[in-house]
Design a protein around this nucleic acid. Structure first.
Lengths: 120, 120
DNA sequence: CTCATCTACAACCATTTGGTTGTACGTTAC
DNA sequence: GTAACGTACAACCAAATGGTTGTAGATGAG
């Protein structure tokens, strides 16, 4: 179970990183290709420094990584981080499904035992 | 595509709700069964009011819903909200997979065309 | 060399967040 | 009816967020 391998603060950073539309957009933009920070900044109605901070948040969450390319810094989606996020959500979903399934079973047993009580 | 059906602020609230370990734990606890707010509060080293606020955040994110049961209020996981969160992440992942796949294809073409340039 | 560009980072500000305590109100138990 | 319980909500506080401007250091272009 992937969830167990990640400390809570890591999860905090991961979800926190996704909790901002600008950041989600940045992730989309740099998926499958590197973009310089200033190149990214041109797309948003905010200062370069603000975009820089958003990238830093994504970096701390391990969703993105930077690579020096001459005088500019290329940002690109960190595939591992993305996979991690997905796997993690899958785990959560599995837990929910399992528990919800158990409840569904109990309810099913109840209705099976009390045939006819469905419409009291 | 589910993503398009959700306004940005909805996504913000959703991810924001997940970005706290206490909240994630609450969601786990109320999955498949209702718990009163004070019942929940007993599990955490914080005040009742604090837990109440966390529940409110989860409620605004539509991950949880409350139902009056006598003098207490039962909190339980909102299955729809959870499904929504998952579907949404699936969409994101599909976008990433597609883009990454496209890049992979391009790289594959390049290596196919330039056989031997792999180690310049 | 010089200038424009890209980046890094500090300082500052308003708002939000995560927590507290205190008060008030409805419901249940006795 | 009264006491205890569960909830709601306001007021407050420290710290984090999301933004700004300004300054300074590398690097590339002419």
């Amino acid at each position: 179970m992937v969830v167990d391998e990640l400390c809570e603060s890591e999860l905090d950073r991961l979800f926190q990183a996704f909790a901002d539309s600008t950041r989600r957009d940045i992730v989309r933009r740099v998926t499958g290709g590197g973009l310089s920070v200033s190149g990214l900044a041109r797309h948003y109605a905010m200062s370069f420094a603000a975009v820089q901070k958003h990238v830093a948040v994504l970096e701390r969450a391990d969703l993105v990584s930077k690579e020096r390319r001459g005088r500019e810094q290329l940002v690109r989606a960190n595939r591992d981080g993305l996979e991690r996020a997905r796997a993690l959500l899958d785990d959560y979903e599995a837990i929910w499904r399992q528990r919800a399934g158990r409840i569904a079973d109990i309810l099913a047993e109840e209705t099976a035992a009390g045939q006819g009580r469905e419409t009291p």
